[in-house]
């Protein structure tokens, strides 16, 4: 915590030419320059031979970013709920899957995809509210039992969803204005006759990424710029003092839980449109949110964004370059993070 602003805490460092912050700045600039070069330049043969092809590499990066957006949507709710209530909601994956199914039903019923998205958010927010009021308020202050209850809920929920929707895979259809592919202004190869081949990418995935960024910024503003946000932050730091200063903590809890569950439901619809909806997805996204918040740090929106970025990219790059060991890469990242910073990159000790 102290040494993040190296130049101030260590005056000796200035006499050695460069401060720690300057070194980091230069490193970031160099990496950014290399990345920009890799995106826009035409690749020499040796680079192609290492990274298969420019198209494969850039697709992996873009897929990674999209997936990171999705992971961020799922994990931000998880991390908010944990930060405030110390409640590890292991039913979060079930909320994601339920949101996806509900989005599917509403989109089929009304024919409007956006209504499906809204329904996923609103209904899951209500479900989250009910869970908070009926279950977690009764077990307040008992972390372990709360977590055990969420495990029980996830078991029951997974089974009931299987009973109702069956084992088939659903695909939420995106509307016409979102589907199709667009050409990105990036040249992946030059044909022998001199025509340039541009990178083509599904438009919808870019929309997912964009909406994740928008929602992320919105959350950041909500947390850092509004009154309810300041209550949430105060609650993360010291729940008892917040309650003692006259704030209705249960109200704040209910809002945060509804928001977290709603985001999971929204992510379910958005993710179910990009990928697919099937039993077992709940575990996949629960694992994703767990790893994202372990890496990024519990209770921090910025941490969730950083963690999602790292995990999403690692997963997709791993998928392309070492297919059967992709999970190991995720795992190694988690272990290394825990070894260096036990509370995650942006986490603080509680």
């Amino acid at each position: 915590m102290v040494d993040t602003s190296g130049s101030h805490s260590n005056p000796l460092a200035q006499s050695q030419g460069m401060t720690r912050r300057q070194v980091w700045g230069i490193a970031v600039l160099v990496i950014a320059a290399v990345l920009i070069w890799m995106v826009f330049a035409q690749w020499p043969d040796w680079l192609n031979s290492i990274l298969i092809s420019k198209k494969a590499f850039l697709s992996a990066i873009l897929n990674g970013l999209t997936l990171a957006g999705l992971y961020f949507l799922v994990a931000s709710g998880f991390t908010l709920v944990f930060g405030l209530m110390r409640n590890v909601n292991l039913a979060h994956g079930s909320l994601y899957l339920l949101g996806a199914y509900i989005g599917y039903e509403f989109a089929e019923w009304t024919g409007y995809w956006l209504i499906g998205v809204a329904a996923g958010f609103i209904i899951l927010a209500v479900v989250g509210l009910v869970m908070q009021i009926l279950v977690f308020r009764r077990l307040e202050g008992d972390d372990l039992r709360q977590t055990l209850v969420t495990i029980g809920i996830s078991v029951v929920a997974a089974d009931l969803m299987l009973a109702y929707w069956g084992g088939t895979t659903y695909q939420i259809l995106t509307p016409g204005w979102l589907s199709g592919a667009i050409k990105l202004p990036v040249v992946t190869a030059v044909r022998s006759n001199g025509t340039e081949v541009f990178l083509v990418y599904p438009f919808y995935r870019l929309v997912v990424l964009l909406s994740a960024i928008v929602i992320g910024i919105g959350l950041w503003l909500l947390i850092n710029r509004t009154r309810i946000g300041s209550m949430i932050r105060a609650g993360v730091d010291d729940r008892d003092m917040l309650s003692a200063s006259g704030v209705n903590v249960h109200f704040v809890f209910a809002i945060v839980f509804a928001l977290g569950a709603g985001l999971a439901g929204l992510a379910g619809v958005v993710g179910g449109s990009a990928l697919s909806v099937a039993p077992g997805e709940d575990v996949r996204y629960l694992l994703a949110s767990l790893v994202v918040v372990i890496v990024g740090g519990m209770g921090s929106i910025t941490g969730a964004a950083i963690g999602a970025l790292i995990i999403g990219l690692a997963e997709q790059i791993g998928l392309v370059y070492f297919p059967t060991y992709g999970v190991v890469l995720t795992f190694v990242i988690m272990v290394v993070t825990l070894a260096i910073r036990p509370h995650g990159i942006m986490g603080r000790s509680m």
Binding site: V88, D143, L144, T147, L290, V291, V328, F331, M334, L338
Partner: peptide, 22 residues
């Protein structure tokens, strides 16, 4: 054990799930 309390459940679940997928 690098972390404590409720984190243990999360980390072991993450490990178990990662092993399953692997």
């Amino acid at each position: 054990v690098r972390t404590e309390g409720i984190y243990t459940i999360m980390i072991t679940l993450a490990v178990a799930t990662a092993c399953f997928y692997f």
